[in-house]
């Protein structure tokens, strides 16, 4: 059944972008724009590859990636928040840095191994349902965790004191500070947490591509930036938007079964997700960033 195959593959392919989009949402909802998302993802994927090469276990890789995510978060928090460097330019520089670092280190340390993914796990009972069973309940653990993370991210942002305070920092940091909040600390937490989630997206990407190559992410982090805008910072909508991009990416792998698409050269099919992204950004024209996103904040209490 071709539809099942395309959607099922789409679900698998959307997961890296989904994790990255959660991470980006956490950060933007605290007022930090992370254009370096692509680099963080790449470092996450590399760390997973490193864990697999050295310890032979993807779980060690996941651990490495979480650690690397924290490190990236600390560095980026220092730059974006503490030093207040321009977030777009710093992010782009961070991406090139991550590309250089992971490519250089991969030559030295990453070996091809057999273990590259998480074991597939069918949910008993649910996997029997026609269509939805195969599409949703026959994946690896990182996929299920990604879906369960949506309510969790929503809860953190909209039902906890942290989420309320962080959102204040993305709307009107001066007022947040006047209310006694420490804008910098709230943003540090968001950047580090967001980088960990983004880095896990890198692990998911590594797990679904069967090995690490230079520049593995190929724009998926940037697509996640668009997903966040399209979904208007709502974690549930992010799941839906990610599926759109997962499926648009899956089309190229199933093209030979899709009639006329089969005649299109693969190098053209590769463009589909990128074109869809541009269309998405155009269609989401009414979607506005929270006002303080991307603007470094200088607390009046700490002004020098």
């Amino acid at each position: 059944m071709i539809l099942t195959d395309v959607v099922s593959l789409g679900v698998a392919l959307m997961i890296p972008m989904l994790w990255a989009a959660y991470g980006e949402t956490l950060m933007e909802k605290a007022g930090v724009l992370n254009v370096g998302i692509e680099g963080v993802m790449l470092i996450g994927a590399f760390s997973a590859a490193l864990g697999v090469s050295t310890a032979g276990s993807i779980y060690v890789g996941l651990g490495f990636a979480i650690g690397a995510g924290v490190l990236c978060g600390i560095v980026l928090a220092l730059l974006y928040v503490r030093l207040g460097t321009d977030q777009i330019v710093t992010g782009i520089m961070f991406n090139i840095f991550a590309f250089g670092l992971t490519t250089t280190l991969a030559v030295e340390f990453v070996r091809a191994t057999e273990v590259t993914s998480f074991p597939r796990f069918e949910i008993p009972g649910l996997a029997e349902i026609p269509f939805f069973g195969e599409v949703l309940f026959d994946h690896n653990i990182l996929v299920y965790a990604a879906f369960l993370a949506a309510p969790l991210v929503f809860y953190v942002l909209h039902r906890t004191w942290y989420g309320l305070y962080a959102r204040a920092c993305s709307e009107y940091p001066r007022a947040a500070e006047a209310a006694g909040l420490d804008v910098w600390h709230l943003r540090y937490i968001a950047v580090i947490g967001g980088c960990v989630l983004t880095s896990i997206g890198g692990v998911a990407l590594f797990a679904s591509s069967g090995g690490f190559v230079s520049g593995l992410t190929d724009g998926r982090g940037f697509i996640a930036l668009a997903i966040v805008i399209l979904a208007r910072w709502n974690p549930y909508w992010i799941v839906g938007a990610s599926l759109l991009f997962g499926v648009s990416e899956a089309l190229q792998f199933q093209a030979d079964r899709l009639g006329p698409l089969g005649d299109v050269p693969p190098d053209i099919l590769v463009m589909i997700p990128y074109i869809v992204t541009i269309l998405a950004v155009v269609l989401a024209r009414a979607s506005r960033y929270p006002p303080a996103v991307g603007v470094p904040y200088r607390p009046s209490a700490k002004a020098s």
Binding site: V35, I88, G219, F222, A226, I275, T277, I278, V281
Partner: peptide, 10 residues
């Protein structure tokens, strides 16, 4: 930023 980056990959 997003449209520029997508055009890079295209």
């Amino acid at each position: 930023v997003i449209t520029c980056l997508m055009l890079v990959f295209i």
